[in-house]
Design a protein around this nucleic acid. Structure first.
Lengths: 177, 177
DNA sequence: TCACGATCGTCAAAGGTTTGACTATCTCGC
DNA sequence: GCGAGATAGTCAAACCTTTGACGATCGTGA
């Protein structure tokens, strides 16, 4: 019982190995849910790493900085809290990131007349240029990933992901502010 | 052209809105690949946030710390570099996390006789208890998420995710050391 | 045998993110 | 009006992670 074919696993074979081992150690484990969690997490990590290292870092943007520019680009000028909600991060994170983006001349911060607590964030021309350039490359990478699937597979996958995203479990996991 | 139904979007409606807007701004955009990237990233973020906030933080574990315990639990005692590869993080991250885990009595570090550069990481009894307890709760959350899908949908989803994970794009995105 | 390059773990530095506290401001009910 | 409670953005603290550098060690070919 002390045999161990482990040690020279790569991440993919680790998933199979881990599921078998977990089932042996904790018989209550749901192996399908486990595989789903592991695979989804792994894939998303690889995606973000790819985006960040090939697209955004070379352009001087952090992954968080890009996400702020992205929501400002597509959802127009936004108050800080809305940018945070759409980008999926805390208000404090937006505040910190915008400090850099403003210094770099990509974003402007102006007071909202109707609510003096609020700050309206908007792209500068340079910001618009930066985000469109970056997103063009970003979408090219997305297309390279998606190309492994047929169009109908892509549709099915998106549908299943959206089903999970709108599930009760997702609703229970209310993120952030 | 300055109309703006944005501002009170939630994350889900943002995806639809963003895809339409991006297509208008950058006609070369592939909307399906865009939706896939956005949805996958969003879902993975919600998953990790759920795991971390409901399972691991309450038990005094960081998400990274749990991942190290997890691979040690399932792949037996491991040299540090192997733990890093399987957990999908840098060697430096493992080194930092193990410092805490060792202080908390969950992991032991012993020199490898055959290679005096290497360090073998192993769970203590307390570490084994901690990780099995945490993973039991973790898997319960995974099951809650997966429960939104029928068994055949789960199988299809896993198959498509694995197809992406083993795609050429994934191979090009070689992660870490 | 030895020198060179590769590899191991660690450290320091830099940056990102979250939480919680704080001030300023708004809103709603009295 | 006005006061209590909610909300906006910011700051500080804490933590995690990556990169790059380093000393120590290994192993391979001359």
């Amino acid at each position: 019982m002390t045999d161990r074919p482990a040690e020279d696993l790569d991440y993919l074979s680790f998933v199979d190995y881990a599921i078998g081992k977990a089932k042996a150690e904790l018989p209550d484990t749901d192996p399908v849910a486990m595989r789903l969690g592991l695979t989804l997490h792994r894939l998303a990590g690889a995606l973000v790493y790819d985006w960040e290292s090939t697209v955004h870092r070379p352009r001087g943007l952090s992954w968080g900085g890009f996400r702020v520019l992205f929501v400002l680009w597509l959802a127009g000028p936004l108050e800080s809290r809305h940018a945070a909600r759409l980008a999926g991060m805390s208000r404090a994170a937006v505040s910190a990131l915008v400090k850099t983006l403003e210094r770099d001349g990509l974003v402007t911060r102006t007071q909202v007349p109707e609510d003096r607590r609020a700050v309206r964030l908007a792209l500068t021309d340079a910001g618009r240029t930066a985000v469109t350039d970056a997103y063009q490359a970003h979408n090219t990478r997305e297309r390279a990933w998606a190309a492994s699937l047929s169009p109908s597979e892509q549709t099915v996958l998106i549908g299943l992901l959206e089903k999970l995203t709108t599930s009760p479990a997702a609703a229970a996991a209310q993120r952030l502010s």
